[in-house]
Computed example of a mutant assay.
Amino acid sequence: MKITKERELHQLCAEFVESLGIDEASELTADLVQAVLRLAADKPGRADLKMVLRAIKELRFGFKMFQPYRHRRKVSIFGSARTTADNADYQAAVEFGRLISAAGFMVITGAGGGIMQAGHEGAGLAHSFGVAIKLPFEQETNAIIAGDEKLAHFRYFFSRKIMFVKETNAVALFPGGFGTHDEAFEVLTLVQTGRADPMPIVMLEKSGGTYWTQWQTFVKHALADNGLISPDDSNLYFITQDPSEAAAHIKQFYANYQSMRYVDDNTVLRVKYTPDAATLYRLNQQFSDICIQGPITIATAAEAEPAHAPEPHLPRLVLPFNRRSPARLRMLIDEINRVEPPTA
């Protein structure tokens, strides 16, 4: 009886979506409507329904805001809202924003003051997004991004974080408080567990600073030395005091590697150019520990991704990745980025 009612409800939702003329992803849209109706039937509290409603509205606006810029790579910049303009960390963030914008990236910040404003100042308004949080204190939208169409305001940290991570291709962290550490460890956790695609994570501060080196000492002695993380996990982040080195690290990550996708039991890496036979053999020898049921192979887009393959002109590297070693996958990507382009 319950299954029959579920089928009837799904059919009603599908017909409703069709009546609105929604063709793209109509099945998923019907499932979304059905999930909301099932939630209401569970009779949650009014506060729970308001939370779900607000979260959906925030996500919808965020997706809509970023949609026209999906073709542009972006860097999320995190750091203290309390850093003043005369602080060397602020100036480092301005310079980093300028350099990464010149390299073709846009920046995403929390839209507040301090490091967030510095990132926008360096990148310029045309290359900046703001993902603001509504707080009873401290957070005010900076003058650079205020009123811009690329600014969104969020009530919930979790929906805001989705935007920071989902829409970015790299992360730059500057010294900050609890919020900066929350964002740092969240991004590291998502990449470490494979819940986010590999991306460069740079930790940058003023020349002569000790903020990130002290952080690294804690990570090494309290976490790595006690077996709480893998020694390879240190490859997931990069510490520097030079904005140009930070920008170069991010650009190098996309020198050859472009993006990835899981297809059945395989991990498909989209690249500009493939390694020669000798290099491919070396990669298979070096990374055999993360491959199950076969070696790394070269394929076309049609062979590797038979359905809905973006960037069909790019060749693919296909590996039966064990999905338990994202840090080693990052090391593989670094090796792929060292592959020399073919000579004309």
Rank of each mutant, 00 (worst) to 15 (best):
Ile145Arg: 02
Phe129Val: 01
Thr141Asp: 05
Arg46Phe: 14
Gly119Pro: 01
Asp89Gly: 13
Lys64Asn: 04
Met51Ala: 15
Gly119Met: 02
Gly122His: 00
Asp86Lys: 04
Asp42Trp: 01
Gln67Cys: 09
Val94Trp: 07
Glu95Phe: 05
Leu125Thr: 00
Ala102Gln: 10
Asn142Pro: 11
Ser128Gly: 08
Ala102Ser: 13
His127Asn: 10
Arg60Asp: 06
Asp42Gln: 10
Gln34Tyr: 04
Ser128Arg: 02
Lys74His: 04
His71Gln: 06
Asp42Phe: 11
Val107Ser: 13
Lys50Tyr: 09
Val52Ile: 14
Ala85Val: 10
Asp31Glu: 14
Arg60Tyr: 07
Arg82Trp: 01
Glu121Ile: 04
Asp42Cys: 13
Asp86Gln: 07
Pro136Lys: 10
Leu99Thr: 08
Asp86Trp: 13
Phe63Asn: 11
Gln117Val: 00
His71Pro: 03
Met106Arg: 14
Met116Pro: 05
Gly113Phe: 04
Gly110Pro: 06
Met65Asp: 05
Ala41Met: 09
Ile115Arg: 02
Phe78Thr: 01
Pro44Arg: 13
Asn142Val: 06
Leu135Ile: 13
Leu49Gly: 11
Arg70Leu: 15
Ala93Ile: 14
Leu32Trp: 08
Phe61Pro: 01
Gly130Ser: 11
Ala143Phe: 12
Gly119Arg: 05
Ala88Arg: 13
Gly119Trp: 03
Gly122Trp: 00
Thr109Gln: 03
Ala126Phe: 00
Gly110Ala: 11
Met116Asn: 09
Pro136Arg: 11
Pro44Lys: 12
His127Gly: 01
Arg60Glu: 07
